[in-house]
Design a protein around this nucleic acid. Structure first.
Lengths: 273, 273
DNA sequence: AGAAGGACCAGTGGTCCGTA
DNA sequence: AGAAGGACCAGTGGTCCGTA
């Protein structure tokens, strides 16, 4: 009941393998390092099985490639669009929507699970590291966070399923996973059982995070920075705001306690968040 | 021969006092904490001598004030433009140009000295700290560097003599001052004696910095970050490039040494920078 | 209805170049 | 000529909203 934590790389049309990832056994449930060769839908695969074809990294690139100094510069070798299976696809399909899965569970049907979501954050970290190494080699300034540059790099490297709005949208869910995996797992199980949608689960992830922040002096930035997987992500605005609001409420409450002697208000604030 | 290190706050038209600075005895030569009440040209002073007038911080503001949430929000009290001395001035005068002064020396005539220049970096640090405190209070994201926001804040606080192009222009000079004051002082004396202009002195500041970087593994970013006064400034592009170029040259040279056994090439590179 | 992501936008880092 | 700084510009962080 707890196999390798897998999900479909749901790119329907084509599913490139994330390339040149230094695997690390971080994150979701089971044994690390298996996402690349995952149950990819059999439609079509990027054909570098040979593993050494030229650069081992023949990558797809968006034709728009504006500022293409990132990957390798041979802008010419367009090895795109040979029919092979059925469904030809230049028209990029969207990723399958996420559903709330419990740890280790593979999403059925045209869905993606939460382990896969969290895996994407690991991929971004790997891409960031590559961008950092490039920058260091070239003596350029070196990003410490997942910036636009990193997203651009990821896209050029073929990871078209990574994009900024998505990653930013779920950062705090990943944060909970990094900071308190127990709680994160419990929440997933609970919301799966209740058959809640992803949006509801996502919303619910804020509360335990605020509680963690409360315990650690309300400094979300410090909390993020202290965790190597999290430190590369910007603290989401909404999480920051929630922590601020709750801290203020707590301050008011505790001062009214110390003035009036009544603990009721404080209790109210803490309970009703 | 080594009095308090002073310079004219050279705003000809009006010279506001930098306000609410937590003085710290950092930086240039003599006793800290004297810049505010400095030999300000007697033309006109901002009249809050009373020290407690309302907020103790009635500040001039550029009329353009676009996004005015920074200082205090009473956008209305325009206490500008009453004639008093002679030279009325809405037309902002430029700052007097810098000349190369030795440590502790006050610039004569319509000039500013290098101690004053370095003092401006301290002021920026103070403004940054204020902006940071504001951000923390409000639960907003907190800048770690002197950003546009800080320059805007400084301007609104009346420090019209602080501006981004100027501060960025001389960052590496300040860096040398912070990292090796001995060398910095010696360079100033040398260039003063040679009657070089500021531009020449500024150029000359790069070389000893690159030498410092060489000694410390070429990581300029780490060097900046390790110094509390420097860590708030972006590493100047040109300094980064010089370090990179020199590191590459050194690498080539040393490898050619280890291959050919000749130390001449290495000697050449190091000497000719 | 719920969700993925292209694309927009205000404000950034960086510095050029018209100005004094 | 040498220098100060207004103002511009490419690319950023942030996220909305037209799309599927």
């Amino acid at each position: 009941s707890h196999p390798n934590a897998l999900d479909a790389l749901s790119q329907q049309g084509l599913s490139e393998k994330p390339v040149r990832q230094k695997r690390e056994a971080v994150g979701s449930g089971g044994s690390g390092g298996t996402w690349e060769m995952v149950s990819a839908p059999a439609y079509r695969r990027y054909h570098d099985q040979g593993k050494k074809k030229g650069q081992q990294q023949k990558l797809r690139r968006t034709k728009s490639g504006r500022r293409g100094d990132e990957i390798n510069e041979e802008e010419n070798d367009e090895e795109v669009e040979e029919e092979e299976g059925g469904i030809s696809c230049n028209e990029r399909q969207r990723e399958h929507p996420f559903i709330v899965t419990e740890p280790g569970e593979v999403a059925r049907g045209k869905k993606n699970g939460i382990d896969y979501l969290f895996h994407l954050y690991q991929l971004c970290r790997d891409f960031l590291i590559q961008v950092q190494n490039l920058a260091k080699d070239r003596g350029e300034k070196c990003p410490t966070k997942v910036t636009n540059q990193v997203f651009r790099y990821a896209k050029k490297a073929g990871a078209t399923y990574i994009n900024k709005p998505k990653m930013r949208h779920y950062v705090h869910c990943y944060a909970l996973h990094c900071l308190d995996e127990e709680t994160s797992n419990a929440l997933r199980r609970e919301f799966k059982e209740r058959r809640e949608n992803v949006g509801a689960w996502r919303q619910a992830c804020y509360k335990p995070l605020v509680a963690i922040a409360a315990r650690q002096g309300w400094d979300v930035d410090a909390i993020f920075n202290a965790n190597p997987c999290l430190s590369i992500w910007y603290v989401p605005t909404k999480l920051r705001q929630l922590c601020h609001a709750e801290r203020s409420a707590a301050a008011v409450a505790s001062s009214s306690v110390s003035i009036s002697g009544s603990a009721l208000i404080a209790g109210h604030h803490l309970a009703n968040f």
